[in-house]
Design a protein around this nucleic acid. Structure first.
Lengths: 175, 175
DNA sequence: CATGAATCATTCATATTATGAACGATTCTT
DNA sequence: AAGAATCGTTCATAATATGAATGATTCATG
């Protein structure tokens, strides 16, 4: 355990310890995948949570912020700022809900749908980049294994915290 | 929460959209694995970066903070606080380096080694929990695929940012 | 059809972290 | 010996998570 002297040699021995466990690799590779996706996304001026919102609204338009927050596993107070930013850029609309004037009905705008397509292209590029080096069969194998774990661990589809992003200012909203 | 008709007739109540891609799953499952490991570690009052430091010093004692920071891909200014905390708890020692009085030679203490064993136990429990539901062959398969990706993406062994932790106060250090 | 409980979007306060500039001490270069 | 570079450290700034508090609105129920 005690290493020899000659500390300063540094490169003395390789850090090629025992081989990493699946769980460790999972966390490392997963963090890398998330970070790289966020980086690509930032070219559109979006963060992963932003993309998650647009994606969710593409199939479930008219959601309230509360429902969306739960769906994405984000705090409602945080969602306010995210929707603010998307609305400022004209990608999302807060329509009044005639059935319940406390809530909004969130909808994708036409530019929002266009943006979603750009996100899709980025996601495909990202996917390709990550699984570069794996053939089709191996990719399927990997996805299947991960899906088993996800199901077994009871994972939601929300954008799991643990991502990087950008983020800017706020906005006001009077009732 | 009337979900009105949306553009997508298929919306329904089932969020069973298209099947997720490998890259997406990787980020989700990876974030989950990291978060769960951090949670287990917190029982020891440690964060993943703490554990990473102890782990690194177990095989490379005598490192300087600068070298360790690069090895773990942590900012040196951040490492100061992390080492402070470990030193306060007597797990790590800052020995003077006779060859270069600007630097410290970081070493694991005896309690530090004991703590490392506890971390090892937690890591094994974690590993078991994550890959629960996969048989031995599948676990190996998964690890092999992830390792291929890690190598191909040029990943370091550092604790990738994107983890949760605890963290407390600071300390002083006069020259 | 009142009225208190609950819900929704929002604001606010607190805590943690990332990030990089700046600094004093020390070593290296020439 | 003088200036550049390195090391550990401090400091300031920005972003985020988190939960309490707030005002508007709806709901439950007598």
């Amino acid at each position: 355990m005690a290493r020899r002297r000659t500390e300063r040699s540094g490169g003395g021995d390789r850090p090629r310890d025992r081989l990493p466990s699946a769980a460790w690799l999972l966390a490392q590779v997963g963090a890398h995948a998330a970070a790289k996706f966020a980086e690509r996304l930032s070219a559109l001026g979006l963060s992963p949570p932003h993309a998650g919102i647009l994606w969710a609204l593409s199939t479930s338009g008219g959601l309230s912020q509360q429902a969306l927050a739960e769906h994405l596993d984000v705090l409602p107070s945080r969602l306010v700022a995210l929707v603010d930013e998307l609305e400022e850029r004209g990608l999302v609309e807060r329509r009044d809900n005639p059935d319940d004037r406390r809530t909004y009905a969130l909808h994708l705008t036409s530019p929002g749908r266009t943006m979603l397509e750009a996100i899709g292209r980025i996601a495909r590029t990202h996917q390709e980049s990550i699984s570069e080096g794996l053939d089709a069969g191996e990719r399927e194998q990997l996805a299947a294994l991960l899906l088993r774990i996800a199901d077994q661990q009871g994972l939601r589809r929300g954008v799991h915290p643990g991502f990087r992003s950008l983020g800017r200012g706020r906005r006001r909203k009077e009732r």
